[in-house]
Design a protein around this nucleic acid. Sequence first.
DNA 1: ACCGTACTACGAGGTCTATCGTACGAAGCA
DNA 2: TGCTTCGTACGATAGACCTCGTAGTACGGT
Lengths: 119, 119
Amino acid sequence: MTTAAGSRTLAHPGLGEITLEGVLHAFADPMRMRVVRDLAREEGAELSCSYFALPVSKSTSTHHFRVLRENGVIRQIYRGTAKLSVLRRDDLDALFPGLLDTVLAAAARQAERRTAAGS
Amino acid sequence: MTTAAGSRTLAHPGLGEITLEGVLHAFADPMRMRVVRDLAREEGAELSCSYFALPVSKSTSTHHFRVLRENGVIRQIYRGTAKLSVLRRDDLDALFPGLLDTVLAAAARQAERRTAAGS
DNA sequence: ACCGTACTACGAGGTCTATCGTACGAAGCA
DNA sequence: TGCTTCGTACGATAGACCTCGTAGTACGGT
């Protein structure tokens, strides 16, 4: 079959369906926060799931990406065999101005504090 | 007994024990967010648990206050029979600058959006 | 001493979450 | 047509979470 490339599509919540509660819940997990941070570092980049070598099994990884997607934090599209993820920065900023950046800054601070204490 | 009033004390996490993950988790519940919002509105005020007429049982209420306290979001002290709660704004601001205000603003926005859609 | 108020502790039920392993499907390459 | 790679689906498990009701403790007032 030579169907037009994007035959496999995924359901994403619309702007009106994204809740603060859901977004915060998505953020409140170290594994998912790590993904969000990586995604934010390469701003706008479309990264494949396998890029983030998460220290968990593949199924668990899939689960976390789904939570991020269903809560409106990332957008995912298929390209070939890979599934690419992008931060929904515009949508998040429109709904909750400053939230993403503040949380990212807080995560960065905490990471610093931890490496400082751990060494 | 006429022991010096404050015999009953509660354990609070120190600054170094507060984690972003924990704080976000504490925020990611409508009931707790409601408490935080009420607490922020009366900035600096010490409010008794019964002030927030939460639509849940008293035991559940206790549970949520404990989550908030154990994650470093509020400070609780006994005064007489009442147990008063205060936002740990200073500590939160020191650890995660801007986080509390941004989340409060996001919650306010979402509340607005909901009442607008609901009417 | 007694009672009422304010909150806690404990135990239980039901749901949700994070994790895994195995088996499967979709796209690309030889 | 195979084979490989990437990710999904399903089922299972262990733990956490929200909720409750009942029973209990601490304090203050009568």
